[in-house]
């Protein structure tokens, strides 16, 4: 058998003095395999790194979300305390407000007024006040008309 066949190298002549014969195709083959393996490894590591970075970012966002949620809850608690009756009463007193006198009885609330109601509707026991208001109203209107007339006369004396 020829030496080439025994060595199953398709071609290539090695030196007859016993030195190694370099088969370029085998070198290329194994080199390619190594490169592919390295590439796969690099891709895997890169992917794992990206996943880890993303996971870390997600974790940071989760923590931030939890922090904001706690802040929101805290703010809501503060809103609740600020709106408490105790504070409202205290601040109102400081501002000069007072609760309605319990003896105020009738006349201490806004009375509904129908469309044709020009003046507050009188209520029982307060008829005199209602009449006084009606008179005051007519007097006021008269005063306005008179003033308007004076203004017009001053502006247009020849009319």
């Amino acid at each position: 058998m020829h030496d080439r066949e025994r060595l199953f190298i398709p071609y290539g002549r090695g030196p007859r003095n016993g030195g190694a014969r370099v088969d370029l195709r085998m070198v290329a083959f194994f080199g390619t395999v190594l490169i592919l393996l390295a590439l796969a490894g690099w891709l895997y590591l890169r992917q794992a790194s990206e996943v880890a970075a993303l996971a870390s970012e997600i974790r940071q966002l989760e923590l931030e979300k939890e922090d904001r949620h706690r802040a929101l809850v805290t703010l809501r608690g503060e809103v609740a305390m600020l709106g408490s009756l105790k504070r409202v009463l205290a601040e109102g007193t400081e501002l000069g407000y007072a609760l309605p006198d319990e003896d105020a009885g009738e006349g201490s609330f806004v009375v509904e007024c129908t469309a044709d109601c020009a003046l507050p509707r009188p209520w029982v026991g307060d008829e005199n006040a209602a009449m006084e208001r009606a008179q005051a109203g007519s007097l006021l209107w008269g005063d306005v008309v008179e003033r308007l007339g004076n203004v017009l006369r001053a502006a247009f004396p020849t009319w």
Partner: peptide
Amino acid sequence: VIAAVRGSILDINGHYLATSTYA
């Protein structure tokens, strides 16, 4: 465990009668 916040109790006008806070 991630703790859930307990819901609030409000009156008809929306005033807080009971709520949770982080304190």
